[in-house]
């Protein structure tokens, strides 16, 4: 008897919700951007294709810094949502997920025994995420996409909203890349924070008088 292969009977695409981009007053450039990237940020009109929450950014930076002295790469997923504003889509990274890694100073992948911890980390994000890209570090090597990185990006993250974030904790650099028509290009991005992440959110904060005024 011939065994039948699985058959796909229906499919659905993600319904992209309309939502305004984070306002400019709650966005900042990343402090590790190169001078050139910082100029691109300044010249932008504030309508980015990628926003990374302060929480996610801190987790990525701390992860990379935790292996800085060992000079070992780190890696994880960018968990986020895709929205539309003004007829253009943008990605909002809210959190990251990672696990135990099989890494050296020039290579990184998830440890084969680490997937269940990765899934727990993804579920801990507590929202209906889309993996909008990945991050990894290049300790001491600068920010660029190697051929291995380009292969990963081509095979898995070739959508218009997919990004590859590269961080170098030794040289204190960060950059985000995307594939566009088969070529790698840098993608400007902003760090944003939600109002509730303000430590004084919901409180009335009184300015303290200077000692000389008392």
């Amino acid at each position: 008897m011939i065994r039948r292969k699985p058959i796909i009977t229906a499919s659905t695409d993600l319904a992209v919700e309309k939502r305004p981009r984070p306002p400019k007053e709650r966005c900042r450039p990343h402090k590790w951007l190169s001078e050139e990237s910082m100029r691109s940020y300044a010249e932008s009109d504030g309508a980015f294709e990628l926003y990374i929450s302060k929480t996610a950014e801190e987790r990525i930076r701390n992860h990379a810094l935790s292996k800085k002295d060992d000079v070992v790469e780190v890696m994880g997923f960018l968990l986020g949502s895709i929205y539309e504003d003004g007829g253009k889509t943008y990605a909002l990274v809210r959190d990251v997920a990672t696990t135990d890694l099989d890494a050296t100073s020039v290579s990184v992948k998830f440890d084969r025994e680490g997937f269940e911890r990765l899934f727990e980390s993804m579920d801990d994000s507590c929202f209906n995420y889309v993996i909008v890209g990945w991050y990894h570090s290049h300790p001491g090597h600068g920010c660029f996409l190697s051929q291995v990185d380009v292969d990963t990006q081509t095979k898995m993250f070739s959508g218009p909203y997919h990004s590859a974030l590269v961080i170098d904790p030794v040289n204190v650099e960060i950059a985000v890349f995307r594939l566009k028509e088969g070529s790698v290009e840098e993608r400007p991005f902003a760090i944003y924070w939600d109002e509730y992440q303000n430590p004084y959110y919901g409180e009335t904060v009184m300015a303290r008088k200077k000692r000389s005024e008392q």
Binding site: R4, P6, I7, T9, I82, V130, M156, G159
Partner: peptide
């Protein structure tokens, strides 16, 4: 997980996980 899209799949009990991955 990287697009948020879904598919419905029909299969048999003796199909393998590899066949599911290949199909999707």
């Amino acid at each position: 997980a990287e697009t948020g899209g879904t598919v419905d799949m029909e299969l048999e009990a003796d199909n393998t996980v590899q066949e599911i991955i290949e199909g999707a």
